[in-house]
């Protein structure tokens, strides 16, 4: 089947099987920033924005994106570039596998709530797991980014 979807602002037509998940479609279509970490929306490394809201692409059927907008980190390069400076300053990136998904979640948080509390940041990002950093350096980096320090 064919699916019409806007990816990073460009109109795309994807040829898919009805049971295909968005994560696999995007990787096949060379959006390699979207990572595979688990298979049941529990780690967050496959996060993309679906009409501006973060979702786990491993658990969304591609067929459901018909007529919608999908954003991967390739679509927010300026923001990711800036956020990565804050991560770099805190040594918060380590293996980097979770960071494209994290960048998308942080970007969506900023759009929704420009002045979140520490608890709101943690709550919003709790589905983006990281096994490397222990989270605190990421938290400081994200807060500094949001406060534009």
């Amino acid at each position: 089947m064919k699916v019409n979807v806007k990816v990073n602002g460009q109109n795309k037509v994807f040829n898919i099987e009805p049971g295909d998940y968005l994560l696999d479609t995007l990787r096949k279509e060379n959006y390699l920033s979207v990572k595979k970490g688990c298979d049941n929306s529990s780690c967050g490394v496959c996060t993309v924005l679906f009409d501006g809201k973060p979702i786990k692409s491993c658990s969304l059927l591609t067929a459901k994106t018909e007529g919608h907008e999908v954003t991967t980190v390739e679509g927010i390069q300026k923001e990711a570039d800036k956020l990565s400076d804050y991560f770099g300053a805190e040594g918060a990136d380590q293996c980097g596998y979770c960071t494209p998904g994290m960048a998308l979640s942080v970007h969506a948080l900023k759009e929704e709530n420009s002045n979140p509390s520490d608890e709101e940041i943690k709550e919003y990002l709790t589905g983006n797991l990281c096994r490397c950093t222990g989270y605190q350096s990421q938290h400081i980096a994200i807060r500094n980014y949001l406060e534009d320090k």
């Binding site: 390699l32 980190v73 400076d85 770099g88 040594g91 960071t99 494209p100 960048a103």
Partner: peptide
């Protein structure tokens, strides 16, 4: 405390 040589490119999804 220098930034890592690779963190930026990885976050940008290369």
């Amino acid at each position: 405390a220098l930034p890592s040589v690779d963190g930026k490119g990885l976050m940008m999804g290369r």
